[in-house]
């Protein structure tokens, strides 16, 4: 008669590694493929743009970046686009950051959780999904026409305000999430030593939430930096494209009614019939991407510095 298996034997059998896990392997392969597919598309796009633009960038070097717009492909540069995009971004940050953080702070720290606040929050989320062209129409109606006496009409201020309104919902959402991630113990601790609500928010909650808010701001800037549709409606034009004389002061041009931005240049050059503009378009896209990377890098450095203190 065979001996009965001991408990140790049974456990050893049960714990033994099973054979090949088919379902798990298939699933992880499928997940890997989805990752590779999205990466592949991105890489194809980048390679296409870089091979298209590398000729221009190699031939012209920095002069492509420092030359103004010109109807002659051999002389055309993107200087106004860079200046315009930077100025627009500055306006966006100056307007959307304080307003967005303020709105988020009110929603998260002050507003009671009523049906109305939930309605407002849900609609902010909806606003973040509204197509940018709609914001362009809004910018045209409000900042160019209605407030034209303040903004000066189709100026970079109107364009910057339009982009600021466009990114405001994203700004509010990311700032809200950053504030919500701050533990309540911190607020209690601060109130516990006699701080008022405002002192608690100002000295304890906001500093803790700031790195996450800054990350949100970076995403926001990146979004604004690449937008072209709202700017087209709100007045950005390739102002000096066919008329510019070399040597016109840049600041004169920025202060002028007419302004442009990098995405607008890309949009316009892509529509030009001449073959040379294909390469110029690709080169302009490369400049746009490099600037976006630079903004991201700067913001990450900034965030890390805040996190360390």
């Amino acid at each position: 008669m065979a001996a009965l298996p001991t408990t140790a034997d049974v456990v050893a059998t049960n714990l033994k590694r099973r054979g090949f896990d088919m379902a798990g392997t298939v699933l992880s392969t499928v997940l890997l493929l989805t990752l590779l597919a999205s990466l592949g598309i991105l890489v194809t796009l980048l390679v296409d743009v870089f091979t298209g633009g590398i000729g221009v960038l190699a031939d012209r070097g920095w002069s492509f970046v420092t030359d103004p717009l010109s109807p002659t492909p051999a002389k055309a540069g993107v200087l106004q686009g860079i200046m315009g995009s930077i100025a627009l971004t500055a306006i966006v940050v100056l307007v959307a950051f304080p307003v967005g953080v303020g709105a988020a702070a009110y929603l998260e720290e002050y507003a009671r959780d009523t049906r109305f606040t939930r309605f407002v929050t849900a609609n902010i989320r909806n606003l973040a999904g509204v197509p940018s062209i709609v914001y362009g129409l809004l910018g045209l109606a409000v900042f160019v026409k209605l407030a034209g006496s303040l903004t000066g009409g189709r100026t970079i201020i109107a364009g910057g305000l339009t982009l600021a309104v466009l990114v405001l919902p994203i700004m509010i959402i990311t700032a809200s999430e950053a504030l919500r991630a701050v533990p309540d113990e911190l607020r209690q601790a601060s109130m516990g030593v006699g701080a008022t609500k405002w002192e608690t928010i100002r000295h304890q909650v906001l500093p803790v939430a700031l790195p996450a808010i800054l990350t949100g701001t970076v995403l926001t800037i990146a979004r604004a930096f690449g937008e072209s549709a709202p700017l087209l409606l709100a007045g950005a034009v390739l102002s000096s494209f066919f008329t510019s004389a070399d040597g016109v002061s840049l600041f004169e041009r920025l202060a002028d009614e007419k302004y442009t931005a990098l995405p607008i240049i890309v949009f316009n050059w892509a529509r030009q019939p001449q073959e040379e503009f294909r390469a110029l378009t690709a080169a302009a896209i490369v400049v746009l991407l490099v600037l976006l990377l630079a903004i991201n890098a700067a913001a990450i450095v900034l965030r890390d510095r805040f996190e360390r203190t």
Binding site: P183, L186, Q188, S190, M191, G192, V193, G194, T196
Partner: peptide
């Protein structure tokens, strides 16, 4: 706020400021 300035509070879980 004034009450909390007269009555200090120590919480269940240590919650120092970061």
């Amino acid at each position: 706020v004034q009450v909390r300035r007269h009555i200090g509070m120590v919480f269940q879980k240590p919650n120092p400021f970061p």
